[in-house]
Amino acid sequence: MAETADTPAAPPSDPLTERALDVLRTAHPEAVVASELGGRHPWIQVRVEDLRAACRLLRDHDELRMDCCHLISGVDWPEAGEGGEIEVVYHLCSFQILPDDAYRKRAEKNDPWVALKVRVPREKPEVPTVLDIWTGADWHERETWDLVGVRFTGRRELRRILLPDDWPGHPLRKDWEYPASYHGVPIIPPEGL
């Protein structure tokens, strides 16, 4: 938590993320697990069961109007928690409410986006879908399933998108190993990787 406005060394907090955090805290006091407001990449972490409510709130709130789900990424942290965790990061932005000049001139982060994070255990990486909140999340969710192996629940078919359907495993998991062959074609991992 970087809410130390008094110490001069602390980076200034991002007004947009701060506002989003306020809105989330007011509506769902239990939802926010952790947050970082300053620096180059401010973020808000919410409980996975509150994700959909949080997304809906940020999308529909009059001052925020996060109408675009810019990117969904999965990050594998095998060392975190008990038995590893997978972090899913939602970068949201608004095309309805544009930033003012004061915001644009900020050096740290002049980009008006909000990063929402959830963490799920590695053995059971299930995250509720946000497909009905932003239709554009569809392919990002499929890609995150394909490459990182996060299972998005409550949506229609969750198929692989970039890799073939019978590809073994999810390559961006840190413990993924190159298969010996695929349909009889030998796979030689690049040297040094």
Binding site: D67, C68, H70, F95, Q96, W134, T135, G136, A137
Partner: peptide, 10 residues
């Protein structure tokens, strides 16, 4: 339209 474009992340 605007709504469709932003919803899809265009």
């Amino acid at each position: 339209d605007r709504e469709v474009a932003t919803r899809w992340g265009v």
